[in-house]
Nucleic acid binder design. Structure first.
Length: 209
DNA sequence: TACGGGATCTGT
DNA sequence: CAGATCCCGTAA
């Protein structure tokens, strides 16, 4: 099949490095959710956080458990967990096997080329479309990401995959448009001073500012 | 087996 | 700023 767009799909190898490098590089990339019927919802990543070995806020800090097992595997898989009994969080596993690290995807700018949203999103009442995926729990809700996707490989044809920044976006980024901000992470009780959160300063979809 | 708290979000 | 709501990790 000749598909020039497939060259933009991000490989596991590209994720096989420190979450501290991967997290800022994921900003501007596109997360694609595809359902079995072929329906797609796409969004540009505008906010991420890194979680590292030796980081007390990292779920893998105290070693491997049933929940965090996928973080200890190879990069390019997704780690999805339930938080506060009702929300899910999506992580991209980074680094090499046995080095448990990941990047939390905190917010997306949803692609809404046609003015009307897919039916997947219309169930959300009174939400401004630009805020529908503004937060780690919200983006999982709108993309219907739950623990059934835990351990899934990010790859075209799977429920989730990643695509590289478009050349046009990268060019604007290099020109200083899309300024990137680095700050401390959100909602933590440990590791609160580590500046491992990145977001697009001007994006209306960032969870908090 | 029991218990306390969590990488959140919403409505008051 | 409290409540929803479930699972996980730790201790017993």
């Amino acid at each position: 099949m000749h598909d020039s767009a497939s060259t933009a799909v991000i490989s596991s190898d590209w994720c096989s490095r420190s979450s501290l490098e991967l997290a800022p590089d994921l900003i501007g990339c596109t997360l694609v959710r595809q359902w079995p019927d072929g329906t797609q919802v796409r969004g540009v990543i505008v906010e991420t956080e890194a979680y590292e070995p030796g980081d007390p806020a990292c779920h893998a800090y105290r070693g491997m458990t049933e929940r965090n097992r996928v973080m200890f595997g190879p990069a390019g898989f997704v780690y999805v967990y339930l938080i506060y009994g009702m929300y899910h969080c999506l992580n991209i596993v980074s680094d090499y096997p046995n080095i448990a690290s990941a990047v939390l995807i905190r917010a997306l700018e949803l692609e809404t080329t046609p003015p009307q949203l897919p039916s997947k999103m219309t169930g959300n009442k009174n939400q401004s479309p630009t805020r529908l995926a503004a937060g780690p729990g919200k983006l999982c809700r709108v993309l219907e990401i739950d623990r059934s996707l835990n351990g899934t490989l990010l790859q075209q044809g799977q429920p989730l995959w990643l695509e590289q920044r478009t050349p046009a976006w990268q060019q604007q980024f290099d020109q200083g448009l899309h300024p990137l901000t680095q700050t401390t992470r959100i909602g933590l009780t440990q590791g609160v001073d580590l500046p491992w959160r990145w977001y697009l300063r001007d994006s209306q979809a960032v969870s908090k500012r």
